[in-house]
Design a protein around this nucleic acid. Structure first.
Lengths: 123, 123
DNA sequence: ACAATTACGCATAAATTTATGCGTATCTTA
DNA sequence: TAAGATACGCATAAATTTATGCGTAATTGT
């Protein structure tokens, strides 16, 4: 398994967020789970661009870090559901704030991206 | 210069945040600049763990993306100051929310990190 | 029977971000 | 006049995160 090599700094609250929620789909996963899309397959359909294996690893980390609970039902056809923990719930205000910020400034932010040559051909 | 290869998805507001503010020190930089630490050397002293060249690139990107303005004074000893743009100001509520979340949950978040074998030896 | 669905995971490659070695230049202070 | 501060930047290495190839298993629908 992969091991971090660079020391982590946690003097500032912002850094916890970075260390724990940096994953490409993590905030979106928590968001959709809070909207009652609990099963991996549902999340998969909702976020088709997220590769299953990547999404999976991020869900695992969210569980490990205590933002989600995973319930595995031992039914004939395997069934899994995720739900927010208390810590996960506390994340929602952040997610909503960020989401709203993004939507409210969509136009300007899009221009910002377009100014950046790094993004040509990928937007 | 580096060019992105993987297409960017922008259906959701969260993704703008990710694309534009993912840098290791970006939020912290905006935060401290809002606190009136405007000069590179001041920021450097405030965040000694951030390498100058890394911090520099992140400042450049924040300027390019329209979160900061850079004022270069043509004095004998070179002098530079950054200030928040309107777009940068709009970031502050997010940053404060995230920062507070981190501080208020510091204990639990720290435990979360310690549960993760990936972090042993680096916290 | 055969395709589709549900779920999980290892190993490795590719992409992306951070870190560092090495340099430039001007001016102030001891 | 040497050390220290101010600021900037290229090239390359290292670290970290994402993406993908290849597989396993059980059950349902056609």
């Amino acid at each position: 398994m992969y091991q971090k090599k660079t020391p982590v700094q946690l003097d500032c609250g912002l850094q916890f967020f970075k260390e724990l929620l940096n994953g490409k789909w993590k905030l979106m996963l928590v968001y959709y789970i809070s909207k009652n899309l609990k099963r991996p397959s549902e999340l998969q359909r909702k976020i088709p661009n997220a590769d299953r294996r990547v999404m999976d690893k991020q869900l695992q980390e969210l569980v490990l870090h205590g933002f989600l609970n995973k319930k595995a039902f031992d039914t004939k056809v395997p069934k899994v559901e995720y739900e927010l923990t208390e810590l996960g719930e506390k994340l929602l205000p952040l997610i909503l704030t960020i989401e709203q910020w993004g939507e409210q400034n969509r136009f300007v932010l899009n221009e910002a991206l377009e100014k950046d040559p790094k993004f040509i051909n990928v937007i």
